[in-house]
Amino acid sequence: MVEAECAPRQTGSMRIGELSRLTGVAPSRIRFYERNGVLPPAGRGLNGYREYPQTAVKRLGLIDTSQRLGFSLAEIRAALAEAAPNFPSHDALARALRAKLAALDQHLKDVRARRREIEALLRSLGD
């Protein structure tokens, strides 16, 4: 039993706790990303623990940044699948960012139009 717990890890791999510390992403979130196909399934050591490659640090950074910028998990999953096994190219990232920017611009335009409509309704009510 002690031998299984001390099974050697693959060179350059890390367990979920270490990956979490390096990235600031909670272990539960890392498992969520795996379940949802955004992060490739981790390999398993002889002891059954998840073993993540060093590339998982960069990938989680990309996922976290993409989510903060408003990309959905489906959009992130598609972009990463298209680029697999590598990271999205500079051109692919630029295209995705330009598309997101255009969507944000349209959203802002729509919000401004709704705001004007609400203001007009308030004026018509005498407020």
Score class of each variant (00 low, 15 high):
118 I>N: 07
59 R>F: 02
78 A>I: 12
106 Q>F: 03
123 R>T: 13
66 S>V: 03
103 A>Y: 01
15 R>I: 07
94 A>H: 07
81 A>Y: 03
52 Y>E: 01
65 T>F: 11
104 L>M: 04
81 A>W: 07
73 L>W: 04
68 R>Y: 03
25 V>N: 02
72 S>Y: 05
64 D>Y: 12
102 A>Y: 07
66 S>C: 12
9 R>P: 13
117 E>T: 00
93 L>M: 11
30 I>Q: 08
21 R>Q: 13
87 F>D: 06
81 A>C: 05
57 V>I: 13
55 T>R: 12
114 R>K: 14
14 M>L: 05
49 Y>S: 12
54 Q>M: 10
85 P>Y: 06
12 G>P: 15
38 V>E: 06
104 L>H: 07
112 R>Q: 01
25 V>G: 12
89 S>L: 08
50 R>D: 02
36 N>D: 13
2 V>L: 14
111 V>M: 09
68 R>L: 05
71 F>P: 02
123 R>W: 06
20 S>E: 01
58 K>N: 15
34 E>M: 07
25 V>I: 12
100 K>N: 04
44 R>D: 05
13 S>P: 04
65 T>Q: 11
7 A>W: 09
53 P>Q: 10
103 A>G: 01
59 R>E: 07
58 K>I: 10
98 R>I: 02
53 P>W: 06
104 L>C: 14
84 A>G: 09
28 S>T: 06
36 N>L: 06
91 D>W: 11
53 P>S: 11
51 E>R: 04
119 E>H: 04
122 L>D: 08
95 R>G: 02
62 L>I: 11
82 E>F: 15
70 G>K: 00
117 E>G: 00
66 S>L: 04
94 A>G: 09
35 R>D: 11
64 D>H: 11
104 L>F: 06
7 A>I: 05
56 A>M: 08
118 I>E: 02
44 R>W: 02
126 G>V: 00
49 Y>R: 03
27 P>M: 06
62 L>C: 03
28 S>P: 10
89 S>Y: 08
3 E>D: 15
72 S>P: 10
121 L>F: 10
20 S>C: 07
112 R>V: 00
56 A>W: 02
105 D>E: 03
